[in-house]
Amino acid sequence: MKPAPFEYHRPSSLADALELLADLPDAEPLAGNQSLSILMSNRLASPDHLVDINDLDELSYVEADNGSVAVGALVRHREIERSGTLAQALPVFPEAAGKIAGPVVRNRGTLGGSLGEGDPAGNYPCVAAALEADLELASAGGSRTVSADEFFIATMFTDREEDELITGITVPRDPFPPARTGQTFLAVKEAAQTWPTLSVAGAVRVDDPEDEEPVLEDARVALANAAEVPLRVPGAEGEIEGEPLSEAGLAAAGETAYEAVNPEEELHADETYKRELAREYTKRALTTAHDRAVA
């Protein structure tokens, strides 16, 4: 489990990094190395050049204004987990971060790496899909914005061009006023060290949390490890939006998720089982999000 040879570059500015990615053939960005190193050790990836972006302090930001929340690509899982700003504005992020491995992995792993990897089992891709986040991509030639929905194309395959870096994401805040919103991230894991069998990001906004039976104005559900991409399930959301939360609505949302997923079989999870998890966890996530919204 030793990687093939490569050349190593450690630029100190985003501009230099982008320059290197533009100039060097077969170059790969290196962030937390919590995924890439495994691929390289097994020689499933053997880039000729690694561009280490760990010195790009300009990608380590968490900013919130009234309109949106912006998180830089180099922000570590540990920082997301502990960010007061995110806990207040988008609590599903810290919750999702805290469910990645243990603290040692979280010290190194980054938001950008998790998104860049394009693993449909990843925690953040699923959150990004649920919250309709935009990914900011930059190259020597300029920058562009891609919605999460368009960014993830298939397993380990994204819309990112080889010379591009993800610099961060922005999430609109309008849909999630903290006082009327509840969010959650639930993961089914067999052990701390492994990836989830399935996980779900859920968010709910109600019209009036004080109301006896508040109406769900906006609901979001996305599932991880349930399809080739992080899977937003609009059909499930539609089943409960526009009315107060009901058993029947939840059941219908669950059924929709059961049908919507297209999971790969794994050693300890056959297709039917994953569908059942999708159904059950969709219901649980929406219930939890709802309960938090009205709490």
Binding site: I38, A191, A192, Q193, L267
Partner: peptide, 16 residues
Amino acid sequence: PQSVTLFDYLLPSTTN
């Protein structure tokens, strides 16, 4: 073989 990493052959961790 389907269990060739410690992500698949799961040794009990502190949480188990």
